[in-house]
Amino acid sequence: MAGLRLEEVHAAFGINGVDLAVGEDELLVVLGPSGAGKTTLLRVVAGLMPATRGSVYIGDKDVTGLRPGRRNVSMVFQSYALFPHLTVGENISFGLIVRDVPKAEARERTVKAAEAIGCQHLLSRKPFQLSGGERQRVALARALVREPDVFLLDEPMSNLDLELRVETRAEIKALHRRVGGTMVHVTHDQTEALVMGDRIAVMRDGLIEQLGTPEKLWNEPETTFVARFVGSPAMNLLPGDGPVRPPELFPEPAWLIGFRPEAVVLGQESDPAGTVTRVDVIGEDSYVYLGVAGLDAPVVARVPTAQRPSAGETVPVGVRAAHVFDAATGRRL
């Protein structure tokens, strides 16, 4: 296992100079909205798309000019890309067979990979006889069997239902802990990214907006984009001179202040009044949307459901601590 390094990588369809280093045994999650360039980045690493500028290194080897088959990467596609006419066993061993690995060895390694993923009982079935979750396991086993230097996973969970997704997240993470290796996982699901990633690279418009641990991203978002994209509902972003801001903060129109719904304090008499426009009950907690005079967007607050106000009620809205961003650049101050 070798690690992955990208230096100033540009590519058509929206990669505009990405610098990135992924450690030898690291699971990096690339997170971003549709069109951010996540999948393109993965395809450039795999060699399915050329880098128009910059270099891709796997280990210490510059693979920028190598064809996909020579990079020793394996990829799990969003669609899983299983061969419909081959059995699960044949699908898993495909990469070994075309590389002329002796049949007995290929069989042995296939069984071993299938056991590692927990799909050994499916080996003689055809893909159409499998459920979505089983197909995904087969795709993972196929990625594992060749012992690649880098695993690339392109939104492998987007076709699974929520329950299975939660289960699979944990399984992939456990698998990574077991087998190690450099793993790059692309997703647009921030929960998935926060749960799985050793580090997360947030992408936007073909650039990495922030790279850091899940805690760092959550607690210290570098830009307003990261602040809004990570977390649901998104972080409140209000003008620095607006009515709702921490009391010790000097009003400054060139700033934006950001705070998560759980940081909102309701019911302190000294705070400005807000009118409840909507209440979303999510089990134990509820999200309360408040309109405050002088603010265009509503302030979202998280409160225990038992203490939620009702729509139309007037409640004082305040915040004690907030992130401060430059309103012009969107960067953290």
């Binding site: 795999a46 060699g47 064809r67 996909p68 088959g69 299983l82 075309v98």
Partner: peptide, 19 residues
Amino acid sequence: DVYELAEIEDATGWDIFRR
């Protein structure tokens, strides 16, 4: 994507045609 996968697995043109 099955063709891209075959490419990543370093299958030759003949392998891709046949398999």
